[in-house]
Write a protein that binds this DNA or RNA. Sequence first.
DNA 1: GGTAGAATCTAATTCATATTAGATTATTGT
DNA 2: ACAATAATCTAATATGAATTAGATTCTACC
Lengths: 214, 214
Amino acid sequence: MARKPADQSVSKADIIQAAAEVLRQKGYEATTMKDIAAEVDLTAASLYHHFKNKNALMLAVLEGGMDYALSHIQPIAESNLAPAEKLRQMIHIHVVSLTQHTAVGAAMVFEIGALIGVKTPGEGSKMSAKAVHEFEEWRERFFDRRAAFEDCFRRVVQVGVEVGEFRQVDIPIFVKTVLGANNWVSVWYRPGGRLDGEGIAEQITETFLRSLEP
Amino acid sequence: MARKPADQSVSKADIIQAAAEVLRQKGYEATTMKDIAAEVDLTAASLYHHFKNKNALMLAVLEGGMDYALSHIQPIAESNLAPAEKLRQMIHIHVVSLTQHTAVGAAMVFEIGALIGVKTPGEGSKMSAKAVHEFEEWRERFFDRRAAFEDCFRRVVQVGVEVGEFRQVDIPIFVKTVLGANNWVSVWYRPGGRLDGEGIAEQITETFLRSLEP
DNA sequence: GGTAGAATCTAATTCATATTAGATTATTGT
DNA sequence: ACAATAATCTAATATGAATTAGATTCTACC
């Protein structure tokens, strides 16, 4: 509400962060520009100075989350560690990330669905043809990277199985099981609980590594 | 669009089913009464003959899903089977349910969050005080039952650990890990995939039962 | 075969939200 | 200081969605 003389000007990153926070609480459709604006002491209209429209802002949130996740997981997957150790670290960092960056994490978990189904109507919409195309393209790229993320896990498990370090599992299903368990953390985790992110990650890695013992 | 002379009249159950389906695809806020109505060849206004308002309809969906889940899980949890066998069956039925009743399952997974955050504003809302109170009450009951659901799993694991059939795990975290993996199925499962619900359930139970070996 | 009530429909009403337009104020480089 | 530009604001606009009001059409029963 109040003006900000000294530090006037809110950064894009601030807005994305705020949007992620609201998104986590309310979900895509229920999140209003006003909500987001309020979080950073702006009016809804001001957000349009930073982002073309609501969709663009939301996409920035998801994109940021995905960048973060990939940039942390990939290096581990491509390292020289043994499969078990790779997997341990990957699950660990994934879970801890989701508890640290609650906002981004939950946004990603919850909003993939909304993203898939976002209105891409052929007729009475406000989106221009170009905007629709842009969006489609963005979405495709996003899903590619999401697939890449999952592939990191698959490859690690694959090698582990081949090397005999892990038992024979159905790799796609196993990986989805792990990612489901991880992602779910951002649904129920609340700061200040009995265990912190590290503690939770510990338990989950233990569970899955044991489940892979030959 | 067309009228239904012979079988005019759509049942409440039909509408709930349709709502669940739309809900799964679009999420709570993005689901419009028109969408739901279209699914059963009605107009939006007609839905109000069957349900007091949108919220009531949504709640009916969640309630139905919860009834279903609880009614299938509880008997197993309270049976005389060994903990491992109980857990196997519970995970199995949970996963299979989510793949069979895709609509209800996904609705539950996706909408818990929305439910928590549903606007319960103190001022400029349309909900009457009574309606708000009713809703609050409903929500409380719903979460109680959700907790009961989770408790079924906890108790089974607890006993298994005490009896020495399972290794010592952090029970709350372990259960959340299992439920997360299960629930996630309804996010990614698509009929006609490589494995059916049974096959998927098989893999998941195997993973978690192995992870519990002492 | 006529009537009561259920199930629908069409046509408003109302309200919130995204988005735009046009000022206004701050910052920064000169 | 001054101008250019960035960041905001306030005030409209437009659209879409929930909900209501008031007919209309079935269906079942007498």
